[in-house]
Amino acid sequence: MRRLTSQKKLENQRPGYAFVAPVVIMMAGLLVYPMLYGLYISFFNTNLVSRWNFVGLKYYIEAFTDPEFYSSVLLTLEFMVLVVAGHFIIGFYLATQLNKAFRGRIGYRIIFMLPWFFPEAVVALLFTWILNPMYGIMNSILNSLGLISTNVSWLGSQELAFPTVVAVCIWKGFPLVMTMILAGLQTIPSELYEAAEIDGVGKFAQLRYITIPSLKPILKTVLILDCVWWFKQYTLVYTMTAGGPGTATSLISLSVYGTAFNDLRFGKGAAWGILVFFICYLINILLKAVIKDDD
C-alpha cells in the first residue's frame, strides 16, 4: 500500500520534473559546467589547446604565498567600499534634495541621471581625455584657478590613479542609487513628517527615525546590487588605466583576465577565478547575515 502511494507520488511529481528540466539543463550547461571546467583547468599549466601540464595545487598555493593575488583582492575590496560609500552619500543627498518641490525639478532629475545613461567605455574615454596631463581640460581649469602650477598626471601616478578612478566610478554609478532612494522617498507617507512636525521633531531626528527606517528595504537591495556590480568592475578601470600605473588600479577582475587572456596562463587565471568565487560567496553570506539580523 505504502509502495503504491510512493509510486503514485512519483508519477504526480513527474510533470513537475519535466517542466523544470529545461531550466536545470540550461543552468547546468551555462553555470555548473563552466565552473567545474574552470576548477579542472586550474590544476593545469595550459593554453587550452596544445599545452596541458598537470601542476596540482601549485596555483592555489602560489596565490596564498604570492602577495600579488591578495593585494589585488584587498585593493578590489577597498575600491568596492569606497565606490559604494560614494554612491550612497551622493545618491542619498541628491535624492533628498530632488524629493523637495522646486521649479525645474524634473530637469535636474534628468541631468543627474545622465552619467548612468552613458556606456562605461564612453565615460572612461571621456575622463581619459578630460584628465590627460598634456591637453586635458582638468589641468587647464586648475591651472587657470591657480590651484596647480604644473600639469598633473591624474591617471599616471601611483598616488592619484586609484582615487581618480574611484571618483570616476562614483560619478558613473551614483544615479542608480539616487533613483532607487528617490523612489523609496516618494513612498513614505507625508503624514508621518506632518505628525513629526506637530510633535516638534527636528529635521535630523526625522531623517533618523522616519526616512532611514522607511528606506531600509530599498537601501539593503541597492547595497547588495551595488557591491556585486562594483566588485566585478572591469570596463571603466581597464579603459582608463588598464590596471596601472604599476599595480595602482589592478583590480582582481583585471588581474584574472590579464593572466588568462593576455599571458595565456589559463590554469593560473582559473585558479584565481575560483578563489574569487569563494570570496564573493563569503561576501554574499556576510551581507545576508547582516540583513537577517536587521530583520
Binding site: G156, E159, G246, T247, G258, L264
Partner: peptide, 18 residues
C-alpha cells in the same frame, strides 16, 4: 605575451613610483 607583460609591469612600476 607573458614576457612582454612582465617587462611592461617592471618599467610601469618604476614610472609610477611604486
Amino acid at each position: 605575451a607573458g614576457l612582454k607583460g612582465a617587462l611592461g609591469d617592471a618599467y610601469s612600476a618604476v614610472f609610477s613610483g611604486e
